[in-house]
Write a protein that binds this DNA or RNA. Structure first.
Lengths: 250, 250
DNA sequence: CGCTGCCTTGAGTTACATCAAACGCGGTGG
DNA sequence: CCACCGCGTTTGATGTAACTCAAGGCAGCG
């Protein structure tokens, strides 16, 4: 099972903000975590952070390891999953720019990472080690609240995953994965959306075998609500697709 | 589908603490939420709270409703679930004394409840309305951190649910439900445990039909690692049961 | 032009849900 | 004490969604 991509698309370095010599953030960068802090707090946080580049397949944190790094995804995409007893991965969600991970480092409870995270694309992150995190906590009175917001949004997403993905038939799950992924990862406009996802990645995310995923996708292509190439899915109309798959016969 | 019990077992009023005239808590009461506060904060929180009795079948909060009540379960048991698209319930977990709910009321984001909670046993809770919650936030500087801990533990449990229940075969799920329920709800000693759960409740929690649940339970009874009566399961040895069901052939 | 992976297709198998029907425990009333 | 009834439980027969496995097709690349 592979979550990473072989190719390495658009690993780009965000443009530097002219007014600051602190670590660069891409223009238009949004983060639930940073949004909860004051401009001053953001500044001191960013100067304390160490930037890092990431590549596909790279394991960014592993469940069970001692939590000693708090980090923020700046560019790229990561897969968040959990290892099941039998060894294979239970996909939880995609991580996109602005998402923070390794919260255990700050919360201290649990002391170890609870999920495993793997890079899927080229990208970059900002990391705070244990010492920096501690400083961060002291310097940012709003950090507690900000973390609450982040935690709440994670909870929300997870509950949503449980309620929606987990106990619906395979076809609905796959449709859902496509729609949600489109919202998070889609490149172009609003309606026509291209997704750089292989059948296998989709299958993992929707919790089914590649075979089942292929069959459903093929069926949808025959219906004309979707086109696919190797490693790429194209939804001509996102809302159209959503409607067509939600309804009567999937 | 029924989560509530018909009988009304041990709805008991906790003994009052002699040193205080604030709302009573049972002896030996533990709560992640309260543990995160200072004694002074706890005191002011408890005096602001309104006690309430609850009965089986009572809906304590409903997903989608505006979040206007933060509450702490004092005695009894509740079922936390989510309504699926098709209308039936996706069981998330049991709520036991010490658990807090309606966090959205304090976090404000999301503004509505994300899960539905139903009482399963007679019991009691302490509730803070919107105004009291606001006061609580102002009076308790440690509340943010305390909520962090609560949220983190919820996340942890949810991830665990996803990883364990959702994608294991039915038998393993059922075994898991029994073990976890035993840990949370078991009455007597440490090894021998009695559970007041009907086959139907177990089936809901383990996400299967009553039929499948019955078959598995019957099989285990034949093996001697479990006894059952109407509406009651007895595990002669919890650890023995866990070992026997985790291993080779379930 | 052949190789390497991704993708597709079909046949066989399994786990679990669905449905119909009956059993039996535990309470209730005669 | 017995007959009755309701509801939780049990069993078997049957259907089916999705997984497994084997094999071949096809795109892109050297």
């Amino acid at each position: 099972m592979r979550l990473s991509e072989r190719r390495s698309p658009r690993g780009f370095e965000g443009p530097r903000r002219p007014d600051s010599n602190r670590t660069a953030l891409p223009l238009g960068f949004r983060s639930t975590f940073l949004d909860g802090l004051t401009p001053g707090e953001i500044n001191s946080a960013l100067t304390a952070a160490k930037p890092e580049r990431i590549s596909p397949h790279q394991i960014l944190q592993q469940e069970g390891d001692r939590a000693n790094r708090f980090w923020l995804l700046v560019t790229g995409r990561v897969a968040v999953y959990r290892l099941a007893r039998n060894g294979n991965r239970v996909f939880l969600r995609w991580g996109v720019p602005g998402d923070t991970f390794g919260l255990s480092t700050i919360l201290k409870c649990p002391e170890t990472y609870v999920v495993t995270i793997e890079a899927v694309q080229e990208g970059s992150l900002l990391a705070w080690d244990k010492a920096s995190s501690r400083t961060l906590v002291l310097r940012c009175p709003n950090l507690g609240k900000s973390l609450n917001a982040v935690l709440a949004s994670y909870l929300d997403r997870l509950i949503h995953v449980l309620g929606t993905y987990a106990f619906q038939p395979a076809e609905q799950r796959l449709a859902r994965v496509l729609v949600e992924s489109a919202r998070q990862l889609g490149c172009t406009g609003h309606e026509r959306i291209e997704l750089d996802l292989t059948n296998e990645q989709l299958a993992v995310a929707a919790r089914m075998t590649v075979f089942t995923a292929t069959r459903k996708l093929t069926k949808w292509q025959a219906r004309g609500i979707l086109t696919k190439r190797r490693g790429k899915i194209v939804l001509p109309s996102l809302s159209g697709f959503a409607k067509a798959t939600k309804g009567p016969s999937g």
